[in-house]
């Protein structure tokens, strides 16, 4: 996939190479408009946080990036969303191929009721004609990257459902990175976890950004502050402000952003 050079040096993009380019994207559920004319440029290998009150469209936008919204009836999308310069909503796009490149981790950890090993190998079985030892190697590597290997290496063939909530979520991350995506979307990945498990996920995200571009939806302001390089604030379907995380949390340009990050509404 060709990498686009940044079209112009945009001040709101710390990433050196543009990877995701959303232009005047609107999304309708039937009659109601869930996203209004969003334009956003995300660089490669940066962590971007989407914040905003519930129902502001941040999860919807996240799901636009791997076309998970396709699963819902009556969704209509206008504008364009380019990944690596290619509009993912153009008719020639293979959604399967897109989802291989854009992985996703969900709010509620959702390991398959299979073994730990089979969970990570699932995507490989789907796509690869890899041999058994190759798959085993990728499984190990993915579990290591997800900082889970040491905890599960002795019980790879035990059920994934026997893991703790935090471990399950890291397993889901391992499962996502096993098929080597470029982008990982995370939809409130730590919202159901205790502070310690949350801290581990956050550390993991900071490690993963060396290799992946990460977009994360979070309700936790400090989490966004801790792990993201840039932050986008949404309100009722609109992108209110997008800037470096330090700027958003110490000196936001818009009053709405300030009110939200300081907890005055939302």
């Amino acid at each position: 996939m060709p990498k686009l050079n940044p079209p112009e040096a945009k001040t709101n993009s710390p990433g050196s190479n543009t990877l995701i380019q959303i232009e005047s994207l609107s999304l309708h559920y039937g009659e109601s408009k869930a996203l209004k004319n969003i334009s956003l440029t995300l660089g490669e290998k940066v962590v971007t946080a989407f914040i905003g009150p519930s129902g502001c469209g941040k999860s919807t936008l996240l799901r636009c990036l791997n076309r998970m919204n396709d699963l819902i009836d009556n969704v209509r999308i206008e504008g364009s969303c380019k990944i690596g310069g290619h509009d993912i909503y153009s008719p020639d796009v293979d959604v399967i191929e897109l989802r291989k490149r854009v992985g996703m981790v969900f709010q509620k950890s959702n390991p398959f009721p299979k073994s730990i090993y089979e969970n990570v190998a699932y995507g490989l079985h789907l796509h690869g004609s890899k041999s058994k030892p190759e798959i085993a190697a990728v499984v190990e590597q993915s579990l290591r990257s997800a900082a889970l290997w040491d905890e599960v290496k002795d019980r790879l063939h035990a059920s994934a459902l026997g893991l703790s909530g935090g471990q399950q979520q890291r397993l889901c991350i391992a499962r996502a990175i096993a098929i080597k995506p470029e982008i990982i979307l995370m939809d409130e990945p730590a919202s159901a976890l205790d502070p310690l498990a949350t801290a581990r996920i956050e550390e993991l995200i900071l490690e993963l950004k060396k290799d992946f571009t990460i977009v994360i939806v979070t309700h936790n302001m400090q989490q966004a502050a801790r792990i993201s390089d840039q932050t986008a604030f949404f309100y009722i379907g609109e992108l209110i402000e997008f800037d470096s995380t330090a700027k958003i949390f110490t000196n936001p340009a818009k009053k709405q952003t300030e009110d939200y990050v300081t907890g005055r509404f939302g």
Binding site: R99, N110, G123, R175
Partner: peptide, 27 residues
């Protein structure tokens, strides 16, 4: 069957049929 399981499979690039055969039916 939790919708999350289907979503997880689809998000990994499985087709609908693959998701039904590998995740939904066994469950």
């Amino acid at each position: 069957i939790p919708p999350g399981l289907r979503e997880a499979s689809l998000a990994l690039g499985a087709t609908k049929l693959e998701t039904i055969l590998r995740v939904v039916l066994p469950q």
